[in-house]
C-alpha cells in the first residue's frame, strides 16, 4: 500500500473556477485598449508570493514546489500565501502558519534544529574532515619531497617532457612503492 492510490487531484474544473474567482475579486484596473492586463494587480506582491512559493513543497505532488505545481492544493496554498502576504503578514508568519498545519514537510529549506543538525553541519563536517586529511597528506608528502634526493639534470629534462605531454616518457609505475 505504498503506492498512494488514494491521492486524488481535484477535478480541474473546480480549480479553474477558483482561479477565476481569484481573478474576479482582484480590483479592476484601467488599461489602454490594446494593452493586455497583467494577471496580477500587484507585481511586487506577486514576486514575494512566488519567491516564497518556490520554497514550499506541494504535498500531493511528486516533488514540486507550490509555485511550479498546478495541482489544486498548490493553487489553494499559493492563494493562502498571496492573501496573507497581502494582508500584511510577514514571510515568517506565513511559513509558521503552514508549518503549524502541514509540518516541516512543507519547507524545502529545512529548519535548523536538533533533528536537522547533521543535515546542516554535515557538509561543513565533511569539508573539515576532507581538509584535515588533505593537510595531513600534503604535509607528509612535502616532507618526502624535502628528504628526497634532488633530481639529476637528465631526470629534470624527462620530467619537463612529461609535463609538456609531448613525450610518452617512461611509466612512473616503475617507481619503488613507498610505505
Amino acid at each position: 500500500m505504498r503506492a498512494s492510490s488514494f491521492r486524488h487531484l481535484l477535478p480541474s474544473a473546480v480549480s479553474a473556477a477558483l482561479f477565476t474567482l481569484i481573478l474576479a475579486v482582484a480590483p479592476p484596473q484601467a488599461f489602454a485598449a490594446d494593452e493586455a492586463a497583467p494577471l496580477v494587480t500587484d507585481p511586487q506582491l506577486e514576486e514575494r508570493v512566488m519567491d516564497l512559493s518556490h520554497k514550499l513543497r506541494c504535498l500531493v505532488c511528486q516533488n514540486q514546489s507550490i509555485a511550479e505545481s498546478n495541482a489544486p492544493l498548490a493553487l489553494d496554498l499559493r492563494n493562502q500565501v498571496r492573501e496573507q502576504l497581502a494582508a500584511g503578514k510577514s514571510e515568517e508568519a506565513v511559513v509558521d502558519y503552514l508549518v503549524a498545519r502541514y509540518g516541516d514537510f512543507v519547507l524545502y529549506l529545512p529548519p535548523f534544529k536538533g533533528t536537522t543538525l547533521l543535515l546542516w553541519l554535515g557538509p561543513a563536517l565533511l569539508l573539515v574532515a576532507g581538509a584535515g586529511w588533505l593537510g595531513w597528506r600534503l604535509r607528509r608528502r612535502a616532507e618526502e619531497v624535502r628528504s628526497a634526493p634532488h633530481l639529476t639534470r637528465d631526470e629534470r629534462a624527462r620530467a619537463r617532457a612529461l609535463l609538456d605531454g609531448t613525450s610518452p616518457g617512461t611509466s612512473p609505475s616503475s617507481e619503488e612503492p613507498r610505505s
Binding site: M1, F6, H8, R101
Partner: peptide
C-alpha cells in the same frame, strides 16, 4: 487547510476536550 488536509479521504479522532488524538490518512 486549517486541518492540514492534503489528500482526501482523511480522518481525525478528536477527544472530549476537543483535542485531535489521531489522524488517519487515506481510506
Amino acid at each position: 487547510i486549517d486541518y492540514g488536509v492534503y489528500g482526501v479521504p482523511e480522518t481525525f479522532l478528536i477527544d472530549r476536550q476537543g483535542v485531535i488524538r489521531y489522524k488517519h490518512i487515506g481510506p
